[in-house]
C-alpha cells in the first residue's frame, strides 16, 4: 500500500516536471520568442488587438490607408477600405525564413515607415471572403 502511494507521488511529480519542461520549451521556442518581441514593439492599441484576436491594424505612412496584419508569415496582410472591409491582400515578407511574430513586426515597421517601398515589392491577392473581424 505504502509502495503504491510512493509510486503514485513519484508519477505525479514526473508529470509536473514534464509539464514544466513543455512549458519552458514552449516559452523559449523561436515562435514564442518572436511573439514576445512583437508584443514589445506594438502600440497599446495594437497589443490589445493582438492579444484578443491575433491580428493588429497599422496605418501606412505614405497613404494613411489602414492594413490588417494577421498572424502568419505569408498572405497575411489585408488593406482595408473606409468601412474596415478588406479591399485587397498584400504579400511581402523578409527574405529569410522567420517566425510569424518576427515577420509581422517587419511588416508593421515597413508599412509604418516606408509603405510605398514595401508595397512596391509585394504581390497582390484577392481578399478572403471569410474575413474574421
Amino acid at each position: 500500500m505504502l509502495l503504491f502511494g510512493a509510486q503514485r507521488r513519484a508519477g505525479s511529480r514526473l508529470q509536473t516536471l514534464r509539464e514544466l519542461y513543455a512549458s519552458f520549451i514552449g516559452e523559449n521556442s523561436p515562435e514564442a520568442r518572436g511573439r514576445h518581441l512583437l508584443r514589445e514593439w506594438l502600440s497599446p492599441v495594437q497589443l490589445a488587438q493582438f492579444d484578443e484576436h491575433r491580428y493588429f491594424d497599422v496605418v501606412g505612412c505614405d497613404t494613411a490607408k489602414r492594413y490588417h496584419i494577421n498572424y502568419g508569415t505569408a498572405a497575411n496582410i489585408h488593406e482595408l477600405d473606409g468601412a474596415g472591409t478588406p479591399r485587397v491582400g498584400w504579400c511581402f515578407a523578409p527574405s529569410a525564413r522567420l517566425v510569424p511574430g518576427d515577420v509581422m513586426l517587419a511588416q508593421k515597421i515597413a508599412l509604418e515607415t516606408n509603405e510605398n517601398a514595401a508595397l512596391s515589392v509585394a504581390n497582390e491577392f484577392p481578399p478572403r471572403m471569410a474575413f474574421n473581424r
Binding site: W41, L42, S43, P44, V45, Q46, L47, C91, F92, A93, P94, S95, A96, L98, D102, L105, A106, K108, I109, A110, E112, T113, N114, A117, A118, V121, A122, N123
Partner: peptide, 24 residues
Amino acid sequence: GEVAVVRAFDPTAQETLFYPRLVG
C-alpha cells in the same frame, strides 16, 4: 508602438532591430 528606420549607427539607441530585405 512608434518606430523609425535609421540609416546611420546611433550609439544612444537603446534598441536597434534589424530585419532582412523585404521580398514579395
